[in-house]
Amino acid sequence: MKWRLVLCAALTLAACDRLPMDPDGTLDRVRAERRFRVGLIATGSAPVDRRPEAAFLARIARATGARPVVKHGASEPLLLDLEDGGLDLVIGPLSSESPWVQRVALLPSLGAVAGAHEVLITPIARNGENRWIMLLEREARAAAAGESP
């Protein structure tokens, strides 16, 4: 009887480790294709320290065994591409008052753009891809805290 309980507990714990899963399997695809598609939002003339972004992408690459394929552009087309599944991640400034806040998942910020108003450099993921989002959040927190990989 005892070994059955132990087996049940072990199976439950193993199942727990599988959650959450991605509805569209983003993390599995990233690992299988060994690449993830990133959109970097242009910040105009504002001076931006790109080092946290680079550190963040390096951390994701290390955690997934995949390399980033980077695309630059304005926020609107990049976010539309993200929503349609054409990108796995967008990084850049996004105001908390933007209507996109409801349509995409905002992750812990990597730093701020200098200027009159503080705008945070935020990693942004497609809504609902919860396992992928969890990995991005973990790496974003570590990158923002300056933790060594």
Binding site: N127, E137, R141
Partner: peptide
């Protein structure tokens, strides 16, 4: 709607909010 259920950091560990 694909709901995002993110993670939080508790006691130094990232835990799924779910």
């Amino acid at each position: 709607e694909h709901a995002t259920v993110a993670s939080i950091r508790l006691f130094g560990r990232d835990i799924w909010l779910g």
